Computed example of a mutant assay.
Amino acid sequence: MFSKAEAQKMKKEFWTAFADAYPRKWLLYDTKIKDVTFKFYVDNKKAQVMLDIEPREDDKRIIYFEKMESLKNILLDEFLPEAVFERNFYLENGKVISRVWVELTGISLYNMASWAAIFRFFNLSMDAFERFFYEYEDYIRDLDINT
Score class of each variant (00 low, 15 high):
residue 1 M to A: 09
residue 2 F to E: 14
residue 3 S to I: 09
residue 6 E to C: 04
residue 7 A to V: 10
residue 13 E to D: 14
residue 15 W to M: 13
residue 19 A to N: 12
residue 23 P to D: 09
residue 24 R to Q: 11
residue 27 L to S: 05
residue 28 L to M: 13
residue 28 L to V: 11
residue 30 D to R: 09
residue 30 D to Y: 14
residue 31 T to Y: 01
residue 35 D to L: 11
residue 37 T to N: 15
residue 38 F to H: 06
residue 39 K to S: 11
residue 41 Y to I: 01
residue 42 V to K: 06
residue 43 D to I: 01
residue 43 D to A: 03
residue 44 N to A: 03
residue 46 K to V: 13
residue 48 Q to A: 09
residue 51 L to H: 04
residue 52 D to C: 08
residue 52 D to L: 11
residue 53 I to T: 08
residue 53 I to N: 05
residue 56 R to W: 13
residue 59 D to S: 15
residue 59 D to R: 14
residue 61 R to Y: 02
residue 63 I to Q: 06
residue 63 I to P: 07
residue 66 E to T: 07
residue 66 E to K: 12
residue 70 S to L: 05
residue 71 L to I: 04
residue 79 F to E: 05
residue 80 L to E: 03
residue 80 L to F: 05
residue 83 A to K: 02
residue 84 V to L: 10
residue 86 E to L: 05
residue 87 R to P: 12
residue 89 F to L: 08
residue 89 F to A: 13
residue 89 F to C: 12
residue 90 Y to Q: 15
residue 94 G to N: 08
residue 94 G to I: 02
residue 97 I to K: 02
residue 98 S to N: 03
residue 102 V to C: 10
residue 103 E to I: 10
residue 104 L to K: 10
residue 106 G to C: 07
residue 110 Y to Q: 02
residue 110 Y to G: 06
residue 114 S to Q: 10
residue 114 S to H: 12
residue 116 A to W: 00
residue 116 A to G: 06
residue 116 A to C: 05
residue 119 F to V: 13
residue 119 F to A: 14
residue 122 F to L: 12
residue 123 N to L: 08
residue 123 N to C: 09
residue 124 L to E: 11
residue 125 S to L: 01
residue 125 S to A: 08
residue 125 S to D: 03
residue 128 A to N: 11
residue 130 E to I: 03
residue 132 F to K: 00
residue 133 F to Y: 14
residue 134 Y to S: 04
residue 135 E to K: 15
residue 136 Y to D: 00
residue 136 Y to L: 00
residue 136 Y to T: 00
residue 138 D to K: 10
residue 139 Y to I: 00
residue 139 Y to D: 03
residue 142 D to E: 09
residue 144 D to I: 12
residue 144 D to N: 15
residue 147 T to H: 12
